[in-house]
Design a protein around this nucleic acid. Sequence first.
DNA 1: TCTTGTGAATAATTTCACAGCT
DNA 2: AGCTGTGAAATTATTCACAAGA
Lengths: 278, 278
Amino acid sequence: MATGRTHRPATRSRGIPEATVARLPLYLRALTALSERSVPTVSSEELAAAAGVNSAKLRKDFSYLGSYGTRGVGYDVEYLVYQISRELGLTQDWPVVIVGIGNLGAALANYGGFASRGFRVAALIDADPAMAGKPVAGIAVQHTDELEKIIKDNGVSIGVIATPAGAAQQVCDRLVAAGVTSILNFAPTVLTVPDGVDVRKVDLSIELQILAFHEQRKAGEDAGQDDGSDDARAVAAREARRAVREVREAAGKTAPDAPTGASDRKGPDGDVPAVMPA
Amino acid sequence: MATGRTHRPATRSRGIPEATVARLPLYLRALTALSERSVPTVSSEELAAAAGVNSAKLRKDFSYLGSYGTRGVGYDVEYLVYQISRELGLTQDWPVVIVGIGNLGAALANYGGFASRGFRVAALIDADPAMAGKPVAGIAVQHTDELEKIIKDNGVSIGVIATPAGAAQQVCDRLVAAGVTSILNFAPTVLTVPDGVDVRKVDLSIELQILAFHEQRKAGEDAGQDDGSDDARAVAAREARRAVREVREAAGKTAPDAPTGASDRKGPDGDVPAVMPA
DNA sequence: TCTTGTGAATAATTTCACAGCT
DNA sequence: AGCTGTGAAATTATTCACAAGA
């Protein structure tokens, strides 16, 4: 039994599950769209469809915020927009800095979704002196030297890192030292931060890799009638792996099929049944 | 265990948990870094630290792939790189198309993380005729008219949508009709696709909103415990909340414009609203 | 009617802790 | 000795299904 620090049974408003928090922006977006079309009320079913989730989940999520609906009617769109915005902290102004104004940084600076929520791009920062003064998205890029001053002058608590991986940790350290307590990291690297600092990461290639996994699985399942004896196949697969390993060990140090030269063209028809390794 | 359940969870053998799949790219990245430094073996503890997860989770994740480690020693880096790559389907070549070559699309096209994995940018597509022929990341942009032909000629099964929200669904429909079965969506909109098509979305502003939520919570909770967090917003936020509560209490049970009766039934106190947006 | 809000049931994921192999 | 692999426990998330209320 873990003793020691008692994590309180979650006070009402603070006990919002992380999974719910992650969906609130989704609901908010759907609600904003409805609001722009002047739709006055919406049912959980409709809103759930618009947000791409199921309605029971949506109602459960909302139940953590309070009772904001009307039975038999639905939810008042404007009211809900406001409540969710407030819950997410978007009724206040969040100045953010973007560090690393390459392609991605520029894209972020131009991204309308920030400004339309409570976010304001307070500054764009880049290490390249040649960038300094150049306007991106209507804002003059400033040099990294100014980082600490910018953070402090603007009361910035959220920083976005869009630098190359090699520079990310250093930038992160400086941001944190200057007072930033939330970081959105686009660089493909794991950042180390002190307690109390939040990091979220967006890795563009990770999402593609997850898609590839499912794509591969699709292709493999298409190739053969499934559902016969999954377990047998599982066992076989496992033994095959073990065998591969043994072969490898016997062979010394050379890796089996190098990840190179994989020229199998993936096509709609001629799929490689990649499920079972040879 | 050992109950004769009639219906087995259809995917037991290939049934790698989604949460695990989502972490495999993370492990792969950490392993690749080790590989580049010619580190021969790594323990679950070390690798977990490098990937930013805890070691029990990592071992559990790997256990779904098979027994690839050596007790008392750890994991062979090269071998594990290969196994995970294969599991993710990265040992084959995945041609992808990027549709919408604005700031973000260009950033994606230039993003090294794709090519270094099994992904190959087969084409860049944009609706703007003025873009046609212009080289981005060394590839000439093609017009949307060519979309179907490009997909078919290259056997593309993964599409990346980086268009404005308004165009996304239409582009999606065309991609799917042409044979794409996996879509990575950067447009801030929910895409509707037929069964069998996978969609993953990356919404830049959602991540920021989640950060804002935690940031706000930090500010509200750090009432007076930590060192001098002279955060004006923290104080403001807290007072705003208090004000809302006071207004609510003063107003008794009836909210101005709101669905009534949100008082005693389910009262997550502090946050029950009384203030309506205009 | 209709739809919300929510306990209870189910499923998924994480963490613990230690047996088993090197 | 040391580290993996994994059942079992704990935690978290989702779904069901229906009473309560407009």
